[in-house]
Design a protein around this nucleic acid. Structure first.
Lengths: 174, 174
DNA sequence: TTTTGATTGTTACAATATAACATAGCTATC
DNA sequence: GATAGCTATGTTATATTGTAACAATCAAAA
């Protein structure tokens, strides 16, 4: 029964797994990391992070703004961008540069950037550590005598689920 | 003497090599590829490509607009973006997603994306085929059952030249 | 030559992001 | 607890980046 209710809700976001679990886990990790680091996980920051974790799609700053306005009439672009800046600094989210959009990071404590696989059909973004890729990049940079500060590796294409069932409507982006 | 004059001019753009050679080669390649493909390398498109090749830094669309206005009073944002779209489609330039800026592609005929190494100090961008990296990505995508359409691999950091001589002023970005 | 499609001109605007300064809220110390 | 200093948020304005839509022009093919 609870299960049934949850599934219905989930159809609005991701279709495959119990997504509320992802969000809760991410919030818990954020609380823990912020506490450890002595930085403040304020209500605004928490709310933005929760909104970002409402799906596995990357979300745009102004869409976040639209979504917090109901709760926070005072919200303005700066409100959102400041929270995003904080979350980026703490490694709790990624910016998907090729979309100008933001997504939760599942590897907040790893402290390095992941590969982002952006599905152009369902718009979900999969994050992968891609260790072999990272090793190859490290070698390449050594050859190039280049000292890395940060990287963005973003791949656009069709994810496995979309490829295997391009007829499913429940998987379409909104 | 000609050599001397050229060096003086080059100090405004790149410092190390005879950069006008890069530009000329790029334009020549563009002419050849467009001709082969039956697409039109119009004066606007050529001029934008030439401006992009004036340095090895990525340049922003509105900076391009400022630079063509002297020659083309009629130029508007759409003028620039249309030329950029064409050049991107033909693989003659890259968009550096993490900078919202554009740079020439030295591997126009290779038909695949390169690694872009963005120096945060001199702002030059080095393009590298990075074959090992690309292989590793291909393997990763196979594991993930993901079909790639395009990729952006952008690494920010300090290039070798800046690292070895952070005192040089001629290398600073403008 | 006509016609068709591609390119460019032009106006208007949408979407993304930051600057700058005022106010409020914490927290460390007296 | 008071208060001083720092962090976070409120607020206004504006900068930057990118597109839509339609008209006019140009070029290549029929």
């Amino acid at each position: 029964m609870t299960q049934q209710a949850e599934m219905t809700e989930l159809e609005h976001t991701s279709t495959i797994h119990d997504h509320s679990g992802c969000r809760e886990k991410a919030i818990h990790t954020a609380e823990k990391l912020c506490s450890q680091r002595g930085v403040r996980f304020t209500p605004i920051r928490r709310e933005i992070l929760e909104l970002i974790w409402e799906s596995h799609r990357a979300i745009k700053a102004y869409d976040l703004l639209d979504r917090i306005k109901p709760h926070m009439g005072s919200a303005k672009p700066a409100t959102v961008y400041r929270a995003l800046d904080f979350l980026l600094e703490q490694g709790l989210i990624h910016k998907v540069e090729s979309l100008n959009a933001f997504m939760g990071c599942s590897y907040s404590d790893h402290r390095h950037d992941q590969l982002l696989l952006v599905c152009v059909q369902c718009h979900e973004v999969e994050e992968r550590p891609g260790e072999r890729v990272m090793e190859a990049i490290a070698m390449e940079l050594e050859q190039a005598a280049f000292t890395m500060q940060r990287k963005a590796i973003e791949i656009h294409g069709i994810c496995g689920r979309c490829a295997s069932s391009s007829s499913s409507s429940s998987r379409a982006a909104n």
